[in-house]
């Protein structure tokens, strides 16, 4: 390990990730546009945004596998342009697409991955067994990878990313495409890592995932950061306490022009429903009925990050 690596890791209070004006261009296309953020040790930090917002590109730059076009980026105090391998040695990466070796068994995948970090074979085996226990795959240790379910493969990928005992974990859409049960199992494992003090950086377009796992997040849209804060603070700042969702019979919504005015602080018209933002959702739904309107369904719920995103961008997260 070089001297500056040691300094960077010992330097208390230095952020693990420091980005200023971070930009990535592919030809004329700007994937990440001058974003600023810091991630502190022990923090759980998220990039929330729709597909194509630039989250994955940002993650790949942090991961030291995609060169920065412009701006400053320091990961573990090091510059990825000059210290890519040293940075990658201290990272645990869960990529969006699985990169498991389908010609090896579950356990062999972990052992061989540890070897790439220069760990002795016995140590790799010891850690592999421990990690399989952690992700609840011990019983599948000697099975081939291919027949595993999507959720199991993700858990194996998480185990693999932990084989080098990383200082920083990067998770790119860790639960996309999984069924709800598999997602909850995965969240539980990630939550345990968070409790142990592991620094997590994740991207997601699921607001519930961001709310569950992130201490702090940035909302990304069209290559830029449009808001930053804790999930609760973002909701408090950009939305009301409650939301009343009205769903009208087909064709009716288009005839409501003006009829909902004044019922809420803010009204969002989505193709299939109307959202009324107010701190007392029940009062809103009563007022709607008092105006003689008869929505097919009425639902009062708390504001979520989805509402924050809608407010900030005028669009929903999953289109």
């Amino acid at each position: 390990m070089s001297d500056d690596t040691a300094v960077a890791l010992d330097g208390a209070g230095l952020p693990l990730i420091h980005a200023r004006g971070l930009t990535k261009r592919f030809g004329a296309f700007i994937a990440v546009d001058a974003v600023d953020f810091d991630v502190q040790k022990g923090e759980s930090f998220g990039f929330l945004g729709p597909n194509g917002a630039g989250k994955t590109t940002a993650m790949r730059m942090i991961g030291g596998v995609s060169p920065v076009s412009e701006g400053t980026l320091r990961v573990l105090g090091l510059d990825p342009a000059t210290h890519g391998p040293q940075i990658r040695a201290r990272l645990g990466v869960v990529p969006q697409q699985d990169s498991l070796d389908t010609e090896l068994t579950v356990r062999e995948n972990l052992v061989i991955y540890g070897r790439y970090f220069g760990l002795p074979r016995d140590e790799c085996k010891r850690r592999a067994d421990e990690l399989l226990e952690f992700v609840q795959l011990s019983e599948r240790a000697n099975d081939q990878v291919d027949p595993l379910s999507g959720g199991m493969k993700r858990r194996l990928t998480i185990a693999r990313s932990l084989i080098n005992e990383p200082d920083l974990m990067l998770l790119d859409e860790p639960t996309t495409g999984l069924d709800p049960q598999a997602r909850h199992l995965l969240w539980d494992r990630l939550y345990r890592l968070k409790q142990k003090g592991t620094t997590l950086v994740l991207t997601t377009h699921y607001m519930d995932e961001a709310e569950q796992l992130c201490d702090r997040l940035v909302v990304m849209d069209k290559a830029k950061i449009v808001a930053e804060g804790s999930p609760r603070a973002l909701i408090a700042q950009h939305s009301t306490k409650e939301v009343t969702e009205l769903r009208f019979p087909v064709g009716i919504q288009e005839t409501l022009d003006g009829k909902l005015d004044g019922l809420a602080e803010r009204i969002e018209w989505l193709p299939d429903r109307v959202l009324l933002y107010a701190n007392d959702g029940e009062a809103v739904s009563v007022a709607v009925h008092e105006r003689g309107l008869r929505p097919e369904t009425t639902m009062v719920r708390r504001s979520t990050l989805e509402d924050v995103f809608l407010r900030l961008t005028g669009r929903t997260l999953i289109e």
């Binding site: 991961g63 596998v65 890519g84 391998p85 040293q86 990658r88 040695a89 990272l91 990466v93 990529p95 697409q97 699985d98 990169s99 498991l100 070796d101 389908t102 010609e103 991955y113 790439y116 970090f117 220069g118 693999r160 080098n164």
Partner: peptide, 14 residues
């Protein structure tokens, strides 16, 4: 297909 080379690239390998 398996993307194992990308997996290797996420380690100190160049």
């Amino acid at each position: 297909w398996t993307r194992t080379f990308h997996g290797m690239y996420a380690t100190p390998m160049s």
